[in-house]
């Protein structure tokens, strides 16, 4: 992509429940911001748990310069219940200038939530959809399962290996994930965009994973998001 194209990139991170979409989306948004792109917009399209994901981090991320389209804690008091709610501003995310990074929540039809966004008037910009996969989750635990899962999503543009065991992670699961996702990607005819890894593994995991895919090191923000 040219610098101009990256500045207008529209990306959606989809994947199974708890696969790591939010963490990847936040880090990606911050990375884009650090390259000098303005504006960078992070969009919370997690509808089932809008109050557990990006909301608690909104103020912090906005202080760093990212525009966050998500509910504010203050506006959620008096709602009566935390639940399935689409914040109106989110619908127009794709009509905005700048780099837009969308965190798409789960559900049987998770990826279909993208249809709730109003598309740009002219399709000069295409929305790139990346599937975040953690093979430590049984539904996407092996090559066959990953292929089945991604096929059911329809048209997507790349896979991301985000395999880990949370605080209990060891390099073995990251490597295994790389192998499984790369193999699945080959079958699907899709690129592996990155292997995403907690930055604490920087020494053990270099710039490329065991299959030669680029590594994107993540700073963990999500532990602060949940209560």
């Amino acid at each position: 992509m040219t610098k101009g194209e990256i500045a207008q990139t529209k990306e959606a991170y989809v994947g199974e429940y708890a696969s790591g979409k939010s963490e990847v989306a936040i880090n990606r948004a911050l990375w884009l911001f650090e390259t000098g792109i303005r504006p960078v917009i992070l969009v919370d399209l997690d509808l089932v748990e809008p109050f557990y994901t990006l909301r608690p981090l909104k103020k912090e991320l906005e202080a760093r310069g990212i525009k966050v389209l998500a509910w504010e804690t203050l506006n959620t008091i008096g709602l009566g219940e935390t639940g399935n709610l689409l914040q109106p501003v989110v619908r127009w995310a794709l009509r905005r200038e700048g780099a837009v990074v969308i965190d798409v929540g789960y559900g049987v039809a998770g990826i279909e939530k993208l249809r709730l966004l109003e598309r740009p008037a002219f399709e000069r910009e295409s929305l790139k959809i990346y599937v975040v996969i953690n093979i430590a989750r049984p539904m996407t635990g092996d090559v066959e399962a990953v292929v089945d899962y991604v096929r059911a999503l329809g048209a997507v543009h790349g896979l991301i290996n985000n395999s880990h065991w949370g605080d209990d992670t060891e390099p073995a699961i990251i490597h295994e994930g790389a192998q499984v996702v790369t193999k699945a990607a080959k079958i699907l005819g899709l690129p592996v965009i990155w292997t995403t890894v907690d930055q604490k593994w920087q020494k053990e995991i270099g710039s490329y994973d065991v299959c030669g895919n680029p590594v994107f090191f993540l700073k963990r923000y999500m532990p602060r998001a949940f209560w």
């Binding site: 429940y17 708890a18 953690n134 989750r137 049984p138 635990g141 880990h164 065991w165 949370g166």
Partner: peptide, 10 residues
Amino acid sequence: VKKVFMTGNE
């Protein structure tokens, strides 16, 4: 036996 990463409900 398999080591996995998931939510409590799962």
